[in-house]
Design a protein around this nucleic acid. Sequence first.
RNA 1: GCCCAGGUGGCGGAACUGGUAGACGCGUUGGACUUAAAAUCCAAUGGCCAGCAAUGGCUGUGCGGGUUCAAGUCCCGCCCUGGGUACCA
Length: 920
Amino acid sequence: MEYSFHEIEKKWQRYWEEQQIYRVEVDPEKPKYYVLDMFPYPSGAGLHVGHPLGYIASDIYARYKRMEGYNVLHPMGYDAFGLPAEQYAIQTGQHPAKTTDHNIRRYREQLSQIGFSFDWNRELRTCDPKYYKWTQWAFIEMFEHWYDNHQQKARPIEKLEGIFSREGNAEVDAANDPLDTFSADQWNKMSQEQQQQVLLSYRIAYLADSMVNWCPELGTVLANDEVKEGVSVRGGYPVIQKKMKQWSLRVTAYANRLLDGLDDLEWSESLKEIQRNWIGRSRGAEIRFDVEHSHTSFEVFTTRPDTLFGVTFMVLAPESDLTRELTTSENRQEVEEYIKKATARSERDRITDTQSVSGVFTGSYALHPITGERLPIWVSDYVLIGYGTGAIMAVPAHDERDNEFARHFNLPIIPVIEGGDPMKQAYDSLEGKVINSQFINGYTAEQAIPVIIEEIEKRGMGREKVNYRLRDAIFSRQRYWGEPFPIYYKNGMPYPLDKSKLPLELPEVDAFKPTSEGRPPLARAKDWKTEEGYPLEESTMPGFAGSSAYYLRFMDPHNEAALVSEEANQYWRNVDLYVGGIEHATGHLIYSRFWNKFLYDIGWVCEDEPFKKLINQGMIQGRSNFVYRIKGTNKFVSYNLKDHYDVTPLHVDVNIVDNDVLDIEAFREWNPDFKDAEFILEEGRYICGYGIEKMSKSLYNVINPDDIIRKYGADTLRMYEMFLGPIDMSKPWDTNGIDGIYKFLKKFWRLFHDEQGNFSLSDEEPSDEELKTLHKTIRKVREDVEQFNFNTAISAMMIAVNELSSSLCNKRQILMPLLRLLTPFAPHIGEELWHRDGNQSSVVDAPVPEHQEKYLQENTFTYPVAFNGKMRFKLELPVDIEQEKAKEIVLNHEKAQKWLNQKPPKKVIFVPNKIINVVV
RNA sequence: GCCCAGGUGGCGGAACUGGUAGACGCGUUGGACUUAAAAUCCAAUGGCCAGCAAUGGCUGUGCGGGUUCAAGUCCCGCCCUGGGUACCA
């Protein structure tokens, strides 16, 4: 019987489903292992061959772990809220729930064909009210907590109210918005609204006026990670900076924990590095500057307090409230104009134009905290409102931007670190002695930093300070297709719904667009208010809300009383292996860690970090094919002849090209324009050119896994994806290579069958050679799987099958262990042959084979013999040969004479079981 | 600009703590089987040179230096590709 993958795969997929083979439950008898894939957003285009890459890798690993005796949790679900479905809804009027559901069905169908070991009983989708109930619940928890910097953890807001009513806020060290201190007395005299306003600035989920990325085209604000190069990641629309009242999550409170926590994670260095840069910790000092003839003072952040004596002017961000406050009446008009101009610029403008220097003088002066010198206060757009205090001390001798600014406006430059020529270019190195700086003269820059910090602390002018680049996450979206906020407003202040009212379901609306007054789509909903008549929040949550805790929900997906039961959480704890794309480095992977740490603080989960080990799968690129049309004609010339003509390369659908040979008939049918096309062939064929590009519909290079499965089967698809190369690297998909895997599986199948195609294994004792083949393969494959080197594991199995095929081995003692080794890669063929050999239970629970060293022992080693480092011949010697004996044999060897040239060798290097090198 | 990966045959890629460069697979070429094709099997396959041939020589891991008996691997200086970031004080 032939290897008929189609029949086999259908059969076992049905069996697995009927027998609930992949269903798992908490089992205290067994050790747990949690393997998770980043769940997909179900797009309308369906899966292409690049999407399952990571799923296949994690599935192989999950299956191995299971065969090793672990209780493996391996779930799958859908990140179902999101912009594309909504954009589509706006265009077509179709409800996003409908298109999303349709897409999910398609995804499920495609995924099911690949033979994954997912426990589908745990499937979840973020747009399901039963699921987003817990997203809303977590939001309320964040609303009801504040972050205590001293204890480094989230604490209930009621505790804070207690503190305020007893002692005011002076002693509270919280991660909060800037706020004046107040006494207990002042607190107790505040109105409820005033108190709420104060509390709001302490909450972890808070509503505040902040500078946000506003995307007019999408009609919504976006978080920092959703904007790249000044345009929205989704859609590529321009983004501007705007001050708006928005919900935010106080991610910055966790900045140091998010940063330090990275050290213990088994993530790739590059991924950790991206997060480190994104969080961006810098150490320095915050220094207060008084303003001349004024009671006002302001603080600046600097990483170079050692250059304090080099300050010659100050600069404020245009958006800063201080700018207007400190502008004198003579300068008002000019400053106002500058602010207007600067704040109107789009993000893209600001990014593309970083060269031109602009700014105006406010008319005020700050006083140097030590020398008392007058320092002019300028305003310029090179100072950003969102970082530090939105104001800087300018040290033109040692900072490039300050230097350019000073030279442009003829401001003084005072060198305070030796080295460089600050009149021409800033010298920003820490190398060099401090000069022109009173009591720190003569120190190195590095030594001077603590000394100067001590001095300003003593004078009460500042303190040591750590600053982060990370910003709080803007959490509201003026869109329809997301989780509604469980928030209502009373006298203008936000209050959470009672948790018993959750989920607050997404209401029906007549159109998925903003209202005519520009309010978000939810404002269109009828009776969008509480039972008491209080209006509900009209924004919805962003895409990352639903994906921030889904790994916890998978532990206990049907629980209606809690996000996850204590029992399930204590057992499954956190994700042991997480597989997904590196593009989530600054979004999902930061938010999830934050979300998890918050739940950890409030005692809901038992692990501080959600994802212990993380593998980034690389991208699968497309391999595009081109045809070459002679300009101005409908004539196409084959690849190797094209240089003789003036041609335009055109993309051609890779599905009508086989091994770079164009199917001319199919080409004519593919596009009516080419119906009457003529061709200049080479050797009777039309050869296409090729190029490596992104896999995309518009480039006609998309490969659909369904097509591959139809032609070769799921086992071949799975193995070929893994065989392409290292899991974490980008590599092009080339369907041509798939034959190698297909042939391998057929060869493997044939080992188990006789000439007539009957299943036939013998119980004959295996030879030493066969045992060696088996055991070296077991060792290699298991080592490789442990390190996610699936491509080399497959090579090793190919070598084994080649060796066993040439000896026509059909011995049960060899083939059945090999089958178990292969099963995680090719589960269908594994299950089929396992059952053909008479087993009743699923191969999924068969133990993974162990190698035995005794079969791998060798008596001899074939040494490469090199002369001056060049390998000249090989020599088989006993593994335990004495060095002197080996040298003697080599030097007397017939083949050595030619290289020795009758002279005694200078030196002979003998590395046991490695190499012999003769130096002549 | 700064930070991080990576650069090996026609292609995807192997190569343990420095030790036979090119495993495995694709493709290509030749052959077997076949009326033919498909499928299958066998052999060759980095480049250059010499030879009828077996074979032998030189050269070769982005470029230029260096360390070493020995370098794809280590060190120094460049170039290129991909990713991250973008006035972060």
